[in-house]
Design a protein around this nucleic acid. Structure first.
Lengths: 328, 328
DNA sequence: TTGTATGCGTTATCAT
DNA sequence: ATGATAACGCATACAA
């Protein structure tokens, strides 16, 4: 910048004004712009960051077991939604992966070091050390997925897993299924536990613990295993709520190998409305997750905290409607 | 840091020494450590970045159409591999998504602004503006996937798509298939074009352009469509090389709906050895992509450029062996 | 409208 | 082993 000022024959203050807006004469402006091009000037954002005490960047963390990070289509959609909202506000989204303890430490330093003005955190668990850290450094943050126990004053955005699970289970009942089972997954996370809760609520007295198979992850392969287990325990099962579309796709495979027709012999519903839902045969009835919108809202909540003008609502719960296709 | 120095009754220089290593007396050290805890000091990395002229961060860009970013399992594995190598060297990996022109500009500024010391760029196309930018600012970079035309002096790491495609096609021939087709995908990228080239080379005189269906993306749904097209054109087809496992999975579906048995009636092979390969029925014979290793190597090449001590090799081609399962 | 001066929080160099 | 001090490159408040 020094060079630019010299080349244009003005002071650095004026150069700064053409860069960041301000009163500048037309002559000075053109001279400076020419000088900028001539010396190939690129602003040093570290210096800017230091002087302004902000980075115009927002961190995106997905605290998932990495197998999920690679597969879960929701995460990607949330990222994209968040990115487009941040982009509109001229903020850079930077995603940080946490795949080890070492990563955890380093990311902690990164966040507290001022590299970002805020953060979006997806699927944190209550005990995740990151939550305490966020609280300590007071970084504007929005949680996605569910409200973290330890930071109840932090905004979060998500969907009503319980309600939607209840609703889609009810529809399964309304179509006349009498032996309805569930392949529950990821019961150690809120989304997984909530979906099971909704299932139970819908069934009420008719809930039979023997008809829920639980598997550790939202994964196709576990869907296959879960369905096999279910068939094993109750061959008469005629309805299945799979905790996610990937799981449902696996269930479909297991049903096919067992010679059951879907939806004639057994109705299957999933959750997420991900790309799985349309590629199975038949296409899945499922719960639509507005993942992109979730990301967008999360970004906006962070931006508003950063702006700090108005208070920010503590939670946004987005609609997740049932979409009825042919698998049930 | 000022506060810490004051609280510990020493100078800032000494504080810095306990932070970044150097000769410090035991007394001073303990006093300073106590002071650090007491005032809750966290280093400001912007200041450090400015003073040291480096960020200890490396950018990770996947220049994919976003539909792919969400689905392609390779990207995730490459990221994880790169992250673990960077982590070992105490560098923060930051992934940046480019989903619009606006993103492109902003990411460009981010990279040239000193927020990162280097970059890993996955699946750049020759005309991607990012390539020119990288050249201009001289950022230590490694390309993944294929060498960029415009930056031939930049290291890249990848696999031999042509050779592996040739090899797996040959194996298909050796198992006695006589009407072998290909579902080619993403012919506008090197990986896609190379796989088709390898296919042609293996077949030699026996290559029949009528037996290749080409689809735009490495995607399950396109696999279904491609296979249908192939069956339509040549009902006698008895071998298929799908450009990726996702495509192969789609092909399997189309074959099933057409009543063909795999591998009895038609043999199918894929590419990638992704999670698709094990979840199809039968499991796919395919080409194993060492995606994680690719990421690791890419990271190491970047780190070595940053260190700048030794010259760095211009390309690393990793082994991608055929793995034989039951689909052919 | 433009120039000047000071501060942002570290690192690094030099004395001591 | 420690303290003082000058960069690092930009933003900003104030003066002109």
């Amino acid at each position: 910048m020094h060079d630019v000022a010299a080349a244009a024959g003005v002071s650095r203050g004026t150069v700064n004004r053409v860069l960041n807006g301000g009163y500048v004469s037309a002559d000075a402006r053109t001279a400076i712009e020419a000088a900028i091009a001539k010396v190939g000037y690129v602003p040093n954002r570290a210096a800017s960051m230091l002087a302004r005490q902000r980075s115009q960047a927002v961190g995106f963390l997905a605290l998932e077991p990495h197998s999920l990070l690679l597969e879960d289509p929701n995460i990607g959609a949330i990222m994209l939604g968040a990115n487009s909202a941040l982009s509109l506000a001229d903020h850079q989204m930077v995603s940080l992966v946490i795949d080890s303890d070492r990563d955890m430490q380093r990311v902690g330093r990164y966040l507290s070091g001022g590299f970002v003005d805020g953060a979006i955190i997806v699927s944190a668990r209550s005990h995740d050390p990151i939550i305490r850290l966020i609280g300590e450094i007071g970084l504007p943050t929005t949680f996605v997925g569910h409200p973290p126990d330890l930071a109840r004053d932090m905004p979060y955005v998500g969907i009503d897993n319980i309600g939607s699970a209840r609703e889609i289970t009810r529809r399964l009942m309304q179509t006349g299924r009498t032996r309805i089972g569930m392949i529950a997954a990821a019961l150690d996370r809120d989304s997984g536990a909530d979906r099971l809760t909704g299932f139970k609520e819908a069934l009420g007295d008719r809930f039979d613990p023997g008809l829920v198979a639980d598997v550790p992850l939202y994964d196709y392969t576990y869907g296959v295993k879960g369905m096999r287990a279910l068939l094993d325990r109750e061959p008469a099962v005629d309805g299945v709520f799979a905790a996610s579309d990937a799981v449902a796709a696996g269930a479909l495979e297991a049903l096919r190998e067992a010679g059951r027709r879907v939806p004639e012999d057994v109705g299957v519903v999933g959750f997420d409305d991900s790309s799985w839902a349309l590629r199975t045969q038949p296409p899945l009835s499922t719960v639509h997750q507005p993942a992109r919108e979730v990301g967008r809202h999360a970004a906006e909540l962070v931006l508003r905290q950063i702006a700090g003008t108005e208070p920010v609502e503590l939670s946004v719960v987005l609609d997740s409607p049932v979409v009825w296709r042919h698998s049930a």
